[in-house]
Nucleic acid binder design. Structure first.
Lengths: 245, 245
DNA sequence: TCAATGCGTATGTCCGGACAATCTGACTAC
DNA sequence: GTAGTCAGATTGTCCGGACATACGCATTGA
């Protein structure tokens, strides 16, 4: 099996990136079968007319993604499949859309409120200062799936209600030039209150899946604090995670 | 502010690792304050008597950890704190111990069973073949916190009951020379059945937090399949996650 | 006053080479 | 036959340099 690889030096795309993409595609496509050796780096570099550091950089990025495993003295192997993708900081909207679920959003509240101590602590603003509040109901197949309550620092973003109904919050932030960096999440469960049950078409006392999240941009600012409740019969958190070596 | 950095060339510890550890310690300790610039790589390399690639490798590892942010034309900045540590593939036992909770384990079942279709699919073994089954009750402060049901491929590990009561399953696997690589997890919630309620000292119908996990080693083998239920009043999943750039 | 331009600075990418550490497998000695 | 030893293969670490690219700021121009 030959595995055709080539790079375009006239392209503005970095060489290591071109290579890693081709390797990833070959793994995805099954051309590179799980467990098979990738061939040594030096020979691979020579074959492509690249230097070894460049090839290493390409391979390293796939190792970080969990697709490849390196063993000193042995070689680089394709991981025995099962790997889909590591946990990403994704929005529920994107997740649903990617799963072909046709998400819909109903904006219940889109206003400013005075920050409580809890909100102020999460967003790093002064208690009592004005913050955006957005309450949304997320539906899939016409059925309520989650109730999302979010708070944002003021003047960070234009929160157009119409736009909120057709896309996700994260997508709007990215479009506004905000570089998301990290988030702190807590996932738990509790019994539904009367109000929660009403909103999600559940019964009082029914188990709900809860998630709280504070998201930070790359300057360290908190850009969003959210309290979400999900119907566990309709949604669960599913993800892959890698062991940090 | 000077920030003393030095490397020991006689040490077997890689130079880039020595440097990244010192930088991480300085960030942790507050010597490097959030938002401050790290100083350019070339000058830093010259000051330490290292090459730029080595310095870059050290910095890159901290960028991957989410502690630093690089900006072309600007420099490398310390992220505005809040970052603790990304989601790790950790065992409940280690988590509790790290939190100073003094975990205790009661092994309820430690035997072999015939693999059901579900177990066989998760572990990648033949349906009906023998697999290890371990059922444990995890306690903290004498109160039941979680009920753990795990299945393992046979002949992978010696599952000593006494050892299971004093340590975690992951620690035993690592000690047995198994290199954990990745895991696929699902977190959800549901109402407790009579049996579950009984085991966890809850009431029937009480909300429970559930987690299913399949863990793989670096050869791609499934090494563990687990179905866990947690008392949401006693435990929730808390973690930090980074945006893949 | 405000926008466009240019320059310095810092990271991003890439090269070619060198030696060390580790694993596998074959060979050798007992 | 078994265990220890050695050689080859492959990745890990490190060096020194070169040019490209993007950002911020000061200068310049309308």
């Amino acid at each position: 099996m030959t595995l055709e690889l080539s790079v375009d030096r006239s392209s503005p795309v970095p060489l290591y990136f071109q290579l890693s993409q081709q390797l990833e595609a070959a793994i995805e496509h099954g051309t590179l079968t799980p467990g098979s050796l990738l061939g040594n780096e030096i020979e691979l570099a020579a074959r492509l007319g690249l230097s070894r550091p460049t090839v290493r950089q390409a391979i390293q990025s796939l190792v970080d993604k969990g697709l490849l495993v390196r063993r000193r003295g042995v070689g680089t192997q394709v991981v025995h499949s099962q790997v889909k993708r590591p946990l990403e900081l994704s929005s529920l909207y994107d997740d649903l859309e990617a799963a072909g679920q046709r998400p819909a959003t109903r904006v219940l509240v889109n206003t400013f409120v005075s920050a409580t101590a809890e909100i102020a602590a999460a967003l790093g603003v002064a208690e009592g200062s004005d913050v955006h509040q957005v309450e949304r109901l997320r539906l899939a197949h016409g059925e309520p799936m989650a109730y999302l309550c979010n708070y944002l620092p003021p003047a960070l973003l234009d929160l157009d209600t119409a736009q909120l109904e057709t896309t996700g919050l994260y997508r709007m932030m990215r479009a506004a030039g905000i570089t998301l960096h990290s988030a702190r999440q807590t996932i738990g469960a509790r019994a539904a209150t009367v109000d929660e049950a009403d909103r999600l078409a559940e019964q009082e006392g029914a188990p709900l899946l809860t998630m709280q999240r504070v998201t930070f941009d790359d300057t360290g600012r908190a850009v969003e604090y959210g309290t979400h409740t999900y119907r566990p019969t309709r949604y669960s958190f599913e993800f892959q995670l890698l062991v940090r070596p």
